[in-house]
């Protein structure tokens, strides 16, 4: 089994655009999806959501308010799952509810740093 990082990206919007009921329905979809991965014993770490506020520090200590003000897709959160192959991890990612709001999932194998 290898660990894969799932990076969730979605449109950043400063004000909530959905009603509390819609948000609750979305929370259920997320919980059912993560629960499904966990029920297959393929969840390493449920991860977290990331808040919108960000700072990016660039060479010369130039600080900006985050890389995503102009970019359509901001990183909204991450999880870590475990599968044999990246194909299997990708199949799991297809069930993510982020596609319902036009977001995307990036699947990355986590490299293990060998400590000598």
């Amino acid at each position: 089994m290898k660990d894969f990082l799932l990076v969730y990206r979605s449109n950043f919007s400063p004000v909530p655009t959905s009603s509390p009921e819609e948000m609750q329905a979305m929370t259920k979809k997320w919980m059912d999806w993560i629960g499904s991965v966990a029920a297959q014993n393929k969840l390493t770490d449920r991860g977290n959501r990331l808040n919108a506020e960000a700072r990016v520090v660039k060479p010369g200590h130039v600080v900006t308010d985050g890389p995503y003000m102009e970019i359509k897709e901001a990183i909204a959160g991450y999880s870590i799952i475990k599968t044999e192959t990246i194909e299997e991890a990708t199949e799991i990612a297809k069930g993510c509810p982020i596609f319902l709001v036009g977001g995307s999932v990036e699947v990355r194998e986590i490299g293990v740093i060998m400590v000598s």
């Binding site: 259920k28 919980m31 059912d32 993560i34 629960g35 966990a38 029920a39 297959q40 014993n41 969840l43 449920r46």
Partner: peptide
Amino acid sequence: WESILQFYNQLLIIQYSPMAALNRT
């Protein structure tokens, strides 16, 4: 059943067991 489902989701996130996976389903 919605409450039971969500408790099983959370339980599996904390700790996997085949029994919890079956009951969740």
